[in-house]
Design a protein around this nucleic acid. Sequence first.
DNA 1: GCGATGACAGATATTGAAATCTGTCATCGC
DNA 2: GCGATGACAGATTTCAATATCTGTCATCGC
Lengths: 197, 197
Amino acid sequence: MPPPPETPLTPARILEATEDVLRRYGPAKATVVDVARALGVSHGSVYRHFRSKTALREAVTGRWLDQEHDSLSRIARAKGPAADRLEDWLLTLFAAKRRKAGVDPELFATYLALATENSEIAARHVETMIGQLTTIVESGIASGEFTMRDAHATGRALWDATAQFHDPVHAPRWSDPDMDPAFAAVCELLLDGLRAR
Amino acid sequence: MPPPPETPLTPARILEATEDVLRRYGPAKATVVDVARALGVSHGSVYRHFRSKTALREAVTGRWLDQEHDSLSRIARAKGPAADRLEDWLLTLFAAKRRKAGVDPELFATYLALATENSEIAARHVETMIGQLTTIVESGIASGEFTMRDAHATGRALWDATAQFHDPVHAPRWSDPDMDPAFAAVCELLLDGLRAR
DNA sequence: GCGATGACAGATATTGAAATCTGTCATCGC
DNA sequence: GCGATGACAGATTTCAATATCTGTCATCGC
């Protein structure tokens, strides 16, 4: 229990401390009192910056879900054949998820629990992901590679059809070596389907 | 507590009683003692027919998973265009799962818990399902509709790509009205992909 | 003889009293 | 004045004592 540092108490510092506490104790045991203790303040002070424990957890959840966006959106907006970018995007997403789930399964489970309890925030994240897929599909239509009418519906179908490779509920299977050929087979089938239109 | 009926104690009667007890109390609370009580016998008698509580639950799990096989395998082995049968098969599977999950969510959750705790039996069931998809793909190759090399890999890819619509972990979403267009979109994309080869 | 029984040991689950947590707010010190 | 505090009420969680369950087996009655 370190003495209170002189830095002022900010939402950012509270979020950081909350992440530490979640890492240490897991989603079931992490309490607001723990967070306050880690910061060397009373728990009443935490409530000055976050309306409730729920609001605090939502903020942490949003932060975590956003950290994937950047590198993926770069791929979505890059130049080159849409089919290649699509494969690259899906592969990057799958690799990132797999790595997180493999390196620290407990932390992954913690954030999965957070995402599950904050389903609205998770839903917004999913819409962002589908939006990026839609961007790729649209560029493929623009370049004449694809010809479907509804790019957004196609983006959603791609997201749904690859659930096995990005939805955390399937994480227990991700360490299975069969996942690589399975991913390749689904990817190829979907790309064939897109080009056929 | 009815008095013991004159019928002899058989594995079939025990399985039926076990299903009743699971329906009534759920997977967490159903005990071998409950099953014995429902049958009007001592729990020792149940152990005469099933090695352990686990074995009893495995038998119930297998029974439940098998009940889908028949109508689906009839579709898989029917005549007509492979693409039509594939769509029919997937739609029938999705409709059946959706109905079960919708009509009695608690019972569905009970059997999901059983399938999860008996993952080997569930894995065998999945292989059977993929086998049926493979049968359809093979008949499509034979008729010249499709031209891929590895029918089994394609069957598996179809299974993986439609996880959203048959894997019970996704059941919470199945009551969403968006599922119908989502299913149609994925199905169309996959069928386009198959025909493109 | 043979299927059924119920007492038993060790493992697991239930329960309710005590401890802790969440969220509020009157009060403090600067 | 203003951010921080900690006592407090009601809700939730923990923990240890108690009860129940699983699986075995010596014994029973037919």
